[in-house]
Amino acid sequence: MQKQALFGKTSDELKIIVKQLNLPAFTAKQLADWFYKKDVNRFDEMTNLSKEARQLLENQFITGLSEPIKVQISDDGTKKYLYRSLQGKYIEAAYIPEADRHTLCVSTQVGCKMGCLFCMTAKQGFQGQLTAGEILNQIRSLPERDLITNIVYMGMGEPLDNLDETMKSLEVLTSDYGFAMSPKRITVSTIGIIPGMKTFIEKSRCNLAVSLHSPFEEDRKKLMPIQNVYPLNEVLDTIRSYDFSRQRRISFEYIMFKGLNDTPRHVKELVRILNGIRCRINLLRFHPIPGTPLQSSENITIEWFRDELKSKGFMTTIRQSRGQDIEAACGMLSTKELLNKKTD
């Protein structure tokens, strides 16, 4: 049986574990310090723990920390890291350096169950949930770890379909005992799983991004099967029932598809459905994936769309496409690795 990993455990979980091992209660805090405050990867390096405690931990647990196994580097500085999960599956994290910020995009699942038409990760199917430790390892074991200013949960998987582990990872990231990162620097992206959204909004202070992609419910249904379960109007009603007017930010992701969601009709409907929500709209170019029937809108259309939304009072930005010379679309690198493994 595989040993349990300790990295990624919350303070409460560590307290229970050290109690079960009959170790002093303060060992939990010491472990959290070594894992989340110091750059130590092995139990035998945790020098303020007794020799017996270190041996006990070594015998019964693994740290769960692991270095990336591959990296692709773009001309624009973007780096895509491939990690191996504890179950031997492949996940990816994208490091995106910019002049004023360094963002890391992390994965929460191996593959995804949501089946969005435009998504490469969906093509892998679902292979498993990541633990909080595996989510956090993408940050902790990143060579550029000390440069990271922002974290976005926008990699492989739907974070709110792995709610418990996502929430635990956010706790460790933002707690004083953990990485003590500001929740304002963390954004979790969802396609709109309403019960998960409610839990996330009520129990964390991080920002929320919702994948919108069409303001028309019937059109959105064809792009995103989740629309059949959690319709957009109910997602927006849920958002309206919470206060996003202060420090916390709500944003909507909108991939621009040629002829499909980039017309004046779509601007008008977006303005109507988002009325009263203080939000940001991020427009994204579509990076085509193999076999897709979809095409990206032209740059001139995307800029027009942005200007129209801005003129209606919505803060709207066009997200810069990064890493186009490497496997730009999320899921491309790990899918390639998965296919290589199957071929072997």
Binding site: M114, G115, L117, G125, P225, V229, G291, P293, L294
Partner: peptide
């Protein structure tokens, strides 16, 4: 998810418009 994605891709490759495909996963 695997069934829906494989079937959707197949239908599209056989000339069905994605706009005529409605999925629950």
């Amino acid at each position: 998810a695997e069934m829906v994605i494989d079937t959707r891709d197949l239908l599209i490759s056989k000339g069905v418009s994605f706009e005529n495909i409605i999925a629950e996963i």
